[in-house]
Simulated scan of single mutants.
Amino acid sequence: MSTALLEGISMGLLLSVMVGPVFFTLIQSSLEYGFRFAAVLALGILLSDTIYVVITYFGIRFLADATWFEQGLGYLGGAILVGFGISSLVKKQVDRPNTGGIHVPQHRKRTAFAKGFSINGINPFVLLFWISIASLVSLNEEWGASSVISYYVGILVTVFSIDLLKAFIAKKLSRFVTPRLMKGLNKLVGLVMIGFGMRMIAWAMGLLGR
Rank of each mutant, 00 (worst) to 15 (best):
V157S: 15
Q28F: 09
S135G: 15
Y52L: 14
G206Q: 08
S88P: 00
I149T: 11
D95G: 15
E70H: 15
L128P: 03
I55M: 15
L191T: 08
F113Y: 11
M198C: 13
G77K: 07
R110I: 10
W203R: 10
I133A: 11
F35Y: 10
S10W: 02
R96C: 06
V82K: 04
L76Q: 03
R199S: 12
K91C: 08
L41A: 12
S146Q: 10
A170D: 03
K92S: 14
S29D: 01
R110N: 02
G85W: 02
G20D: 01
A4T: 01
G34W: 01
M198P: 00
G77P: 06
L63C: 11
A112H: 07
L5E: 00
E7S: 15
N140D: 04
G74M: 12
T158D: 04
S146E: 05
G74D: 05
L89D: 01
G184A: 14
A204W: 01
M205Q: 06
G190P: 03
Y57S: 14
G184Q: 10
L63W: 05
R110M: 12
L127F: 11
V54Y: 09
V137W: 03
F125G: 09
V177L: 12
F58C: 10
W68Y: 07
E142S: 15
L15C: 05
L31H: 04
E141C: 01
G100R: 09
M205V: 07
G34T: 00
N98L: 12
G116M: 07
A79M: 13
I51M: 11
E70C: 08
S48A: 12
A167Y: 03
A42R: 02
G34H: 06
R210W: 03
G144D: 08
R108C: 03
L208V: 00
L76D: 00
P105G: 13
G190D: 01
F35C: 02
L14Y: 00
V94H: 08
V40Q: 04
F113G: 08
S174K: 09
T25R: 01
R180I: 08
S174C: 07
G77N: 09
F58W: 11
K115M: 10
T158L: 10
I102E: 12
S138G: 05
